[in-house]
Lab assay of single mutants.
Amino acid sequence: MATDAALRRLLRLHRTEIAVAVDSAFPLLHALADHDVVPEDKFQETLHLKEKEGCPQAFHALLSWLLTQDSTAILDFWRVLFKDYNLERYGRLQPILDSFPKDVDLSQPRKGRKPPAVPKALVPPPRLPTKRKASEEARAAAPAALTPRGTASPGSQLKAKPPKKPESSAEQQRLPLGNGIQTMSASVQRAVAMSSGDVPGARGAVEGILIQQVFESGGSKKCIQVGGEFYTPSKFEDSGSGKNKARSSSGPKPLVRAKGAQGAAPGGGEARLGQQGSVPAPLALPSDPQLHQKNEDECAVCRDGGELICCDGCPRAFHLACLSPPLREIPSGTWRCSSCLQATVQEVQPRAEEPRPQEPPVETPLPPGLRSAGEEVRGPPGEPLAGMDTTLVYKHLPAPPSAAPLPGLDSSALHPLLCVGPEGQQNLAPGARCGVCGDGTDVLRCTHCAAAFHWRCHFPAGTSRPGTGLRCRSCSGDVTPAPVEGVLAPSPARLAPGPAKDDTASHEPALH
């Protein structure tokens, strides 16, 4: 009773807030009518008042009428009001819900409408889902798969039609296919003929059939049928067999079959498995989609049935006599038709004709302190090069084509190399640097090759510096006499390219 009084008091307290929050009759008014909170006449009256005075006034009048009803109607109103779709449509209802007392429970059932309790003993237990329907569909599909699609060729003596089998029958139906081979029951999904010589313990000319048996419980189990008994694959494991010639990621696949039913060829011909030897223990289905393919039931050349050999690369099948050149017997292992072999060759040939990528240039590290003349020119003028003790990398590039010797140069053309002071002394051009340390401070000019250098860098042994005729380390061993002091540049003949010694390969005349 306390809860009923509290709900009535809360409705009177929030009546105006609810009326202002509800700006549309749908969905709240319609939901109240659906849950029998508002009768039909009051529903029509509220809609009429909404058209006349507006939605807030109409709902305020409806809530005032609701306060005169019993506690069950008020409880049902609060339940409908706080439904998710009403809270989404009328956003101003959320503060009312947040301020609702926590001790007021809106989930209690309506009085007088409590459903009768059902004894637990009368409640049926839930049924577990079964796979009976899938099993029945598999039974119905198996006879259809064994139905012949056409008439065999005159040369083929193997013609068999499976008798119709009602689904209610649980007995196995067997077809006489000759040579002791028996087909599987209607619940078998796949059958492959297997030679009895590969099964340990088999006697006589009995041949087993590799099947997948579907049981009534819905589970499946792969086994071997020899005669009327089934054997699990673990009985046929043979770890010492060295003649297993397995197909790549293979499961067994029928390579020879008669049109209309699988079996042995007439005249004692023995149908073979995809792999010879003992049956392997793992009978998992292969991951290669080509091995799941269903080959055609007629020859791809003459479009006739009979004894066919199936290609492992495509769905086509052929007569042995229709092949070019014809085959006398079934080859062992994987067999592919000429079209598949030709496609494989065409895929391999473009790969062989692809040009080989060019090898990157060989990189040879230079000892610290040495650099090529090109690196000396590329440096920024007026700045010493940083990191001189790091190992430089010199790339061996292809030799350029031989060019004509340089033409003779006048001494005026070499004027930018040297600057003559007032006393006739050779001065260095701006930006000249030593080729060893890279520093341009207090550098000297070689009178023979006009290269800038430090005496301490080229002659670290402490050799005394002569007063005139300074030469760098590369030119100090040259027998050519030094030019007379005061000459602007060496003779043009000295600039012609010539053979250089091994220790002077990195010091070429550089223009500054």
Rank of each mutant, 00 (worst) to 15 (best):
L7Y: 02
L7D: 00
L11D: 05
H14E: 00
R15M: 02
T16M: 03
T16D: 01
V20W: 05
V22K: 00
S24R: 03
L28E: 00
L28T: 05
H30P: 01
A31Q: 07
L32P: 00
A33G: 05
V37S: 00
E40P: 05
D41H: 00
D41Y: 15
K50F: 01
E51I: 00
K52D: 05
G54E: 07
C55V: 05
P56F: 09
A58D: 02
L62G: 00
L62K: 00
T68G: 08
Q69R: 12
D70V: 01
L75W: 15
F77T: 02
W78R: 01
W78Y: 03
R79D: 03
V80Y: 05
V80N: 00
L81V: 00
F82D: 03
K83T: 04
K83G: 01
D84V: 01
N86W: 00
N86I: 02
G91V: 07
R92S: 03
Q94S: 03
P101R: 08
K102R: 15
L106V: 05
S107K: 07
S107H: 14
R110S: 10
K111M: 00
R113K: 12
R113A: 09
V118I: 10
L122M: 11
P125S: 10
P126H: 02
P126K: 11
P126F: 03
R127A: 03
L128M: 14
P129L: 02
A134L: 11
E136A: 12
E137R: 04
R139C: 04
P143N: 14
T147S: 07
P148S: 13
T151K: 08
S153I: 10
L158F: 13
K161S: 04
P163C: 15
K164M: 15
P166C: 14
S168C: 10
A170P: 09
E171S: 15
Q173F: 15
G178I: 15
G180K: 10
S185T: 15
A186T: 08
Q189S: 13
V192Y: 13
D198V: 09
D198L: 05
D198R: 06
P200L: 12
G201V: 09
G201D: 04
G201K: 07
A202W: 04
G204S: 07
G208R: 02
I211C: 04
S220V: 06
K222L: 02
G227R: 04
E229D: 08
F230D: 06
Y231I: 06
P233F: 01
E237M: 14
E237L: 12
G240I: 05
N244M: 01
K245W: 09
S249C: 14
S250Y: 13
P252M: 15
V256D: 06
A261F: 13
Q262L: 14
A264R: 11
A264V: 11
G269L: 14
G269F: 14
A271G: 06
A271E: 11
R272M: 14
L273K: 04
L273S: 09
